[in-house]
Computed example of a mutant assay.
Amino acid sequence: MDWSKAKTILIIAFIVTNIVLGYALFNSQRIDEPTLKEDFITDVAKLLKEKDITLNTAIPKEIPSLGIMTVEYEQRTPGDLNKSFFNNTAEGVTVNEGVVLFEKGKEKLIVTDGKNILYLNDDEEEKYPSLDKEEAIYISKKFLEEKGFSKDDMKLTFQKESNGVFFLEYSKVYNGIYIEKSYTNFQIDKRGVKRFERLWLNEEKLSENKIYISTAPKAILTLLTMENIYGKTIDDISLCYYFDPVKHKEVDEPEKTKQGKAVPAWRIQFSDGNEVILDEY
């Protein structure tokens, strides 16, 4: 007997058996999970409708799990930002503890704790007379490149035009999964970027051990208690890593937090751009 060949066959057989058992176990979990059954999901949709909450997306039907992620706020020094925004030609003034203001002409840059960035431009010159959505997105991406921000870890999750002003919101993503709460927001009109806000998170480490959380149909029942979202439309329901700085506060000052643990949660995106994170259920 060719033992080498026989062992190869046995190994392959074990692998196939494990795959089949794993598949069977996964499907049995799905079947046994009552909150993933069609009747339950239908009832959830009806309850939401009673509160005038419209579903414009499918409710995920998975048994959700993610690892715990260590995240850290993106930090840039005022000097670095002065160079990126003004080529080191703006004067910086310390307005308050941790707050630095740069001004040049009609432009302002406010940096708080090295992580909250607010840029304002009151220039009245129209540079983009035929501005549309596509051009506004292009302007935002060009602005990010010029100021030294990467576009590789973000996704445009909301866009709206109102009275000639385009509102764009980008969210942080890691391997296709959102990391909340962080944001990069723009207000752009025919004059260009009028307002830019950024508070960004960077992933540092991801635990291999996964945490299972409530299914989406069960989790979103929490929305029934939130009167402020009655009448809204849900556009997206996604798993995310959620970092709450209040839970990692330093001496009762959550704004001073630099890093912490992001846990699995459900991210609910509404058609008006607002979001709700469901992480306690």
Rank of each mutant, 00 (worst) to 15 (best):
I220N: 00
G192P: 05
A90S: 09
E227W: 07
K151N: 14
D235T: 11
D252Q: 15
Q269I: 09
I211Y: 07
K5E: 13
V16P: 05
L81E: 00
N163D: 15
G273R: 01
K7G: 08
N163Q: 13
K7P: 01
A219V: 03
L47A: 15
A219W: 00
S182M: 02
G164Y: 09
I177M: 07
G273C: 04
E146H: 02
D152W: 03
T215G: 04
I137H: 06
Q259Y: 09
S4Y: 14
N96S: 13
L224Q: 04
T215A: 03
I137E: 14
E146Q: 11
K190L: 06
I63A: 04
I117R: 00
E169R: 11
I220Y: 00
E91L: 12
Q259N: 13
L66G: 01
K133W: 07
L239R: 06
E145Y: 07
A136R: 02
E62Y: 12
Y281M: 13
L131P: 00
E180I: 03
K37H: 13
Y128T: 03
K115F: 04
P34S: 08
G92C: 06
K49L: 14
D43R: 14
I68P: 02
D279F: 10
A6Y: 10
I211D: 10
T8M: 11
S28W: 15
R195P: 04
R191N: 09
G148A: 00
G98P: 05
A6L: 13
G114W: 04
V251M: 12
L278A: 01
Q29M: 15
K151E: 11
Y241L: 01
G22Q: 08
N163V: 11
Y178M: 06
V20P: 07
K181L: 10
Q187I: 04
I139T: 02
D272A: 06
N163G: 08
Y138M: 14
Q75A: 10
V16Y: 08
I229V: 13
L201H: 01
G105C: 08
D52I: 01
G148F: 01
D236N: 12
V95E: 11
T94N: 13
I117C: 00
L168V: 03
Y23T: 14
I220Q: 00
A216T: 03
K160W: 06
K104A: 02
K232N: 07
V100P: 00
E135Y: 10
E169S: 11
E91W: 07
T35K: 03
V44D: 01
T157F: 04
S130M: 09
P34Y: 07
D122A: 14
I12C: 13
I177P: 03
N185S: 12
N27L: 10
L239V: 05
E253K: 15
K210P: 05
F86E: 01
I237E: 01
V71I: 04
T17C: 14
F14M: 12
Y73N: 04
A90G: 05
T54V: 15
I11N: 09
L206K: 09
T184D: 03
V111I: 14
L224E: 03
D123I: 11
R267W: 08
Y242T: 00
A24E: 15
V20C: 13
Y119E: 00
F270H: 02
F26E: 09
F26R: 13
G105I: 08
N163W: 10
